[in-house]
Design a protein around this nucleic acid. Structure first.
Lengths: 248, 248
DNA sequence: CGACGCTTTGACTATACTCAACCCGTGTGG
DNA sequence: CCACACGGGTTGAGTATAGTCAAAGCGTCG
């Protein structure tokens, strides 16, 4: 696997830990970053400092890979700015979008505890900053502060829940239902508003829902025809009949 | 949600902790049980005893539910004897088999750290014994022995890995490929032997792979016609051409 | 403005589901 | 010991669903 540009940058950084600009960035980024993460936000200042001491800050340009499938998984990555998409390539080479990370989310934990390689790709969707913690350093912290482990466990279990739900959805529901449920899911993020703003373009949405852009397009048209939704613009959809949508 | 028979039994047991037969069973089951679990098997005798002190032993008959969707998730269940199938019902009421637990496997952890209800069903496939640990007791143990947390984290991350892989499989591969990969997966459990013994009947297999028994039947016939496999008996399949199978 | 990539639409095809009938192996009861 | 019932498994016909490929529309960004 090729090293991504981001990877190279990180190494450069580590070669010169006293680089002024980076050090400045580092301090700033870390504070925002660490305090954002739900896993750490119950900690005392002292413990925070300890964690900050073992983290590095790295930034990536749009399209750069944070890591690729096949790369050694030895760090936890916490997003402090920007968006990262996590995707997989299936046996047959099709891309499937797994999730999109926003500031405060983290990734790389999958293989963190079982010394292995990544099976997925992480790509910056825009100018993005991440804080990284080495596998080994994190383990020490977890052993020292067991309460963090519980937080991580909680996060894992909810992700596992989510993932199994997703798998069941793919296995048992047809595309139209998956789209309808996706819209509903996007909606309740946005409170009571009946207007959904799609968090990604239709191509990514297709990949996320395990279908094709053509089918997304057609099914949305069908849902509109049935009077359940109204497509306002490319990424805006108004829900006209929630019950109808759920009964698809 | 109805209480399952197993649930009732557990409560009976707790009412009478000095029941001779049960106490005898308890000791035996616990030792086998705890020592089987990868999460605990690195511990000292002392710690083991401590864990054993907070676990209960419960047994279930074939077809009984260990828990149902909607039940409060407040315990970890470790299988000491028998088999348990974990399945979900999708929005549309279709059943999907998620996994089958064998002695040493555990379940119930999903919601353990986030005070919620089960979203899945756990059903004994035969005469089955499980050891249970209360949510709260487990948390205390994890806080006290952080090394166990790391083990649990490792287990979670591998399960998450597994589940995301499964989701991608459903989302991107056609049924024939899923079946082929399933066969291969069953194979390498059985070492080098080219003979696969299916770990479940075809109905469950269909549910696990997100398809129907009819399709399973047809696709296996296709694979046989193509010369990749030979169906020996209902649950025995011989792999004739592994590369062919993988290229499906 | 032009190019590129995303999106939509159409026609066609592949894939797998449904429903129904039938087969087979197992276990039960006469 | 056989007959039967039952459930799982298989087969067939018809249909629904969604994928592919190709072309054209639209938006955005240099």
């Amino acid at each position: 696997m090729n090293k991504s540009k981001g990877e190279i940058k990180k190494q450069d950084y580590k070669h010169d830990p006293h680089d002024n600009i980076h050090c400045h960035e580092l301090g700033e980024t870390h504070e925002t970053c660490i305090s954002l993460v739900p896993i750490f936000n119950h900690l005392e200042k002292e413990q925070m400092d300890e964690i900050m001491a073992v983290t590095y800050s790295v930034s990536y340009k749009k399209g750069e890979n944070i890591y690729c499938a096949g790369d050694k998984a030895d760090s936890l990555y916490i997003v402090s700015k920007g968006k990262i998409k996590i995707y997989r390539l299936s046996e047959s080479g099709k891309e499937q979008l797994l999730r999109i990370l926003h500031p405060g989310d983290f990734t790389g934990e999958l293989a963190l505890f079982s010394e292995t390689v990544h099976e997925e790709y992480a790509e910056a969707m825009e100018e993005t900053n991440v804080c990284t913690i080495k596998n080994s350093e994190l383990q020490e912290i977890l052993l020292k502060y067991p309460s963090i482990s519980l937080k991580v466990l909680a996060e894992f279990s909810s992700r596992l829940e989510q993932s199994e739900k997703q798998a069941t959805l793919f296995a048992t529901e047809k595309v139209e239902t998956r789209i309808a449920l996706f819209l509903v899911e996007c909606m309740d993020n946005e409170k009571q508003s009946m207007e959904v703003v799609l968090p990604m373009n239709k191509k990514d949405m297709a990949s996320y829902l395990g279908t094709t852009p053509e089918t997304i397009s057609r099914k949305l048209a069908d849902l509109e025809e049935a009077g359940y939704i109204k497509q306002i613009s490319n990424k805006k959809i108004k829900i006209l009949n929630l019950d109808g949508l759920l009964s698809v």
